[in-house]
Amino acid sequence: MNPFDLTGKTALVTGASRGLGKGFALALARSGADVVVTSRTLSSLDDTVAEIEALGRKAWPIVLDVREQDSIEAAAEAAWSAAGHLDILVNNAGCNVRKPALEVTWDDWNLILDTNLRGVFFTAQAIARRMVGRGYGRIINIGSVTCVNGYSGLAPYCASRGGVKQLTMSLADDWGQHGITVNCLAPGWFKTAQNAVMYEDTGWVDYLTDRIPLKRPGAPGDLDGTLVFLASDASAYMTGQTLLVDGGISVGAVKAVPKKA
Rank of each mutant, 00 (worst) to 15 (best):
M1N: 07
P3N: 10
P3V: 09
P3F: 08
L6P: 02
T10A: 15
V13Y: 00
T14M: 07
A16S: 14
L20F: 06
A27R: 02
A27W: 01
R30M: 15
R30H: 13
R30T: 15
S31N: 06
G32S: 14
V36R: 04
V37P: 01
V37E: 02
T38H: 07
S39E: 03
D46S: 13
D46W: 03
D46R: 10
D47A: 11
A50R: 09
L55Q: 12
G56D: 04
A59D: 13
A75N: 14
A83M: 15
H85E: 10
D87P: 04
D87C: 04
D87Q: 04
I88F: 06
N92D: 12
E103Q: 14
W109T: 00
W109C: 01
L111E: 02
L113E: 04
L117R: 00
R118N: 15
G119V: 14
G119L: 12
F121R: 07
V132R: 07
V132D: 03
G135I: 05
C147R: 00
V148W: 00
N149R: 09
N149I: 09
S152V: 11
S152T: 08
R161P: 05
G162E: 00
L167S: 02
M169I: 13
S170R: 09
D174T: 09
G176C: 06
G179Y: 09
I180Q: 01
V182F: 01
A186T: 07
P187W: 06
G188D: 05
W189A: 07
W189C: 05
F190N: 00
A196H: 13
M198K: 09
E200R: 08
E200M: 11
W204D: 15
D206C: 12
Y207D: 10
I212P: 05
G218A: 10
G221F: 14
D224T: 01
D224P: 03
G225T: 15
G225R: 08
F229S: 01
L230I: 13
S232I: 10
A236W: 08
Y237R: 06
M238Y: 08
Q241R: 12
L244A: 12
I249V: 08
I249Y: 05
I249A: 04
A253H: 07
K255G: 12
P258L: 07
K260D: 10
